[in-house]
Amino acid sequence: MAKAIYTPVLRHIQDLNHQVWVVQDQTLTAVPRKHSMVPATVSLIPCQYPETLETEKGIPMYLGLDKPDVCLFCTKTREQPMLQLEDKNIMTLYHHPEPVKPFLFYHSKSGRTSTFESVAFPGWFIAVCSEGGCPLFLTQDLGKAYTTDFELTPVN
């Protein structure tokens, strides 16, 4: 067993429009942040075996939620890469002896903001609607109507 002590880092994630990721009825959604709401606590842990991955795109990371035990995962539905939540403990993925690509995202940081690019579907990024109130999805249109730049803030 390698590095059993390593634990995921916990973050709140929002975009520059102050829309924060929240879990609403088992769906990860970006909504305007309010005092009254509890943002989703996202757990992130780097892949231990990035050798076979394109690490110049960023640090390969597993993304999950602190509670419940679900992880973000990319799958293809009708030729369309889709972002879903799957019941999975992030440490199970972490200890897997090779990269579990559908659950991996290249975390690339530029200044304050980060992007998350699917490892399974290169060129597809985690995105939210600019106008808020929509579930997270994958897009390959960068810098258009959707927001793909996110800010990670420590959980207080």
Partner: peptide
């Protein structure tokens, strides 16, 4: 999923039904 909204009485309010993609 279910989203909670608490808009103010007497104010205009709009909500977009969107499920990208």
């Amino acid at each position: 999923g279910m989203q909670n909204e608490t808009p103010s009485v007497g104010q205009p309010f709009a909500f977009n039904c969107t499920f990208p993609p």
